[in-house]
């Protein structure tokens, strides 16, 4: 049997974080996506990276443990998405997504708030 290539999709979660804030995001993956294969982030102000940490659950499974530095999952312009994405394999299909983002930039970032975008690499299984 030939191996079927699944269709790659993307889901974006965007939220605004204020200096020193801990932000909790609760949402769901898209119903039409079958699996979540990876995750990465981008900050609108990368100067806020040092010290920022996050914790992520997908489908009630802790994927990224508490106190993980955001810098390890952050996408820079000089990297391909494939290299930076944190690999995982969890069920999508409307499963819960919970992200706790802790900022630690009181003495670092320029502006008072910045946007965080979390990208979920999703896959849709090809129907025969």
């Amino acid at each position: 049997m030939e191996k079927q290539e699944n269709i790659k999709k993307l889901q974006v979660v965007k939220f605004e974080v204020k200096k020193g804030q801990t932000f909790e995001f609760n949402g769901n993956t898209k119903t039409e996506h079958d699996r979540i294969k990876g995750i990465f982030l981008r900050l609108s102000n990368p100067q806020a990276l040092p010290g920022a940490t996050l914790r992520v659950w997908i489908d009630d499974t802790e994927i990224i443990p508490d106190d993980t530095e955001v810098a390890l999952l952050h996408h820079n312009d000089d990297m391909s998405i494939k290299d930076v994405a944190f690999p995982m394999d969890e069920k999508a299909k409307n499963s819960p997504v919970r992200i706790i983002y802790k900022d630690d930039s009181e003495n670092l970032a320029v502006s008072d708030s910045y946007n965080v975008r979390v990208y979920l690499l999703a896959e849709v299984e090809k129907k025969k």
Partner: peptide, 11 residues
């Protein structure tokens, strides 16, 4: 300390 960190797979 304070070095530039790369992404997880490289670290």
């Amino acid at each position: 300390a304070n070095r530039k960190v790369r992404n997880m797979s490289k670290e």
